[in-house]
Amino acid sequence: YHADPSLVSFLTGLGCPNCIEYFTSQGLQSIYHLQNLTIEDLGALKIPEQYRMTIWRGLQDLK
């Protein structure tokens, strides 16, 4: 799967570019796929713990 530029820029902007593959490997290719994820969902996606809160907060800021 290839990540949408919106996803790449979002995660890169948060300092988490190495997390892109965790999302794309589950078929979550764009920022729209991420918008309703919970902190528990990020854990289920195996996002490293040190990035989960950062990503979750970033998603809240998009709403």
Rank of each mutant, 00 (worst) to 15 (best):
S9P: 05
L62W: 13
S6R: 11
C16F: 05
N36S: 13
Q35T: 07
R57Y: 10
A44T: 09
L45H: 02
Q50C: 14
E21R: 10
P5Y: 15
T12L: 05
S25P: 04
L62D: 14
P48H: 02
D41T: 05
I47P: 00
T38M: 06
K46G: 12
Y22R: 09
R57M: 03
L7H: 00
D61C: 03
L14R: 03
S6W: 04
F23T: 00
P17T: 12
T12C: 03
C16K: 03
I55H: 00
I20C: 07
Y1P: 15
G43Y: 10
L45P: 01
Q60P: 03
G15V: 01
R52Q: 10
P5A: 14
L34C: 08
L62I: 09
E40A: 11
T38P: 04
V8H: 10
G58A: 12
G27N: 08
S25I: 04
H2M: 15
L37G: 02
G43N: 10
T38V: 06
H33S: 13
Q26T: 07
F10M: 02
L14D: 00
N18K: 05
L28N: 04
Y22L: 11
K46L: 07
Q35P: 04
A3L: 15
W56Q: 12
K63M: 11
G27M: 01
L34R: 01
L28W: 05
P5C: 15
A3G: 15
P5D: 15
F23Q: 01
Q50I: 04
L42P: 01
L37H: 08
W56H: 14
F23R: 00
D4W: 15
S6D: 12
E49C: 08
G13Y: 04
Q29L: 13
L14S: 02
T12G: 14
L62Y: 11
T54K: 13
I39W: 04
S9M: 04
Q35D: 14
T24A: 10
L7I: 10
H2R: 15
D61K: 06
C16P: 00
L45G: 02
D4G: 04
F23S: 00
Q50L: 09
K46T: 06
Y22F: 11
L45S: 03
F10E: 00
Y51I: 05
S6A: 13
I31L: 12
R52K: 09
L62N: 13
D41I: 00
I55N: 02
Q29H: 14
S6K: 07
F10L: 03
E40S: 09
H2A: 07
Y22A: 09
S30D: 11
M53L: 12
I47L: 12
H2L: 15
W56V: 08
S25N: 11
F23M: 03
E21V: 10
Y1D: 15
L42G: 01
P17M: 10
Q60G: 09
G15M: 02
P17Q: 14
V8F: 09
T38L: 05
S25D: 07
R57D: 11
F23D: 00
F23G: 00
P48Y: 00
Y51D: 07
A44Q: 12
Q26Y: 03
I31H: 05
H33V: 08
A44H: 10
D4V: 09
A44S: 13
Q26E: 11
Q60D: 10
Q29N: 06
W56T: 14
E40N: 06
F10N: 01
A3E: 15
P48R: 02
P48Q: 04
S6T: 08
G58I: 01
L7Y: 02
W56S: 11
V8N: 08
L7E: 02
L62C: 06
T54I: 12
L42F: 11
S6P: 05
N18I: 11
W56K: 06
T38Y: 02
A44R: 15
N36D: 14
T24W: 04
Q50V: 12
T12F: 07
A3S: 15
L62F: 08
V8K: 15
K46Q: 12
E40K: 05
S9C: 03
L7A: 03
I31W: 09
G43L: 12
I31V: 13
W56C: 06
C16Y: 07
I47M: 06
Q35A: 10
T38S: 12
K46D: 05
L11I: 13
N36M: 10
Q50M: 13
A44G: 14
Y1V: 15
S9Y: 04
Y51T: 06
N18D: 13
S6C: 12
C16V: 11
A3C: 15
Y22I: 06
Q35V: 13
S9I: 03
F23P: 00
T54Y: 04
P5E: 15
L45T: 07
N36F: 04
D61Q: 06
T24N: 04
N36G: 11
L7W: 01
S25M: 08
Y32A: 11
L45N: 04
L28P: 03
F23H: 01
L28H: 14
G27W: 01
G27T: 05
C19P: 00
D41P: 00
Q60M: 12
E40H: 10
L37T: 09
G58R: 04
E49S: 08
L59P: 00
Q29S: 13
G58S: 06
L42A: 02
E49H: 09
Q50D: 06
H2K: 15
L7Q: 00
R57C: 04
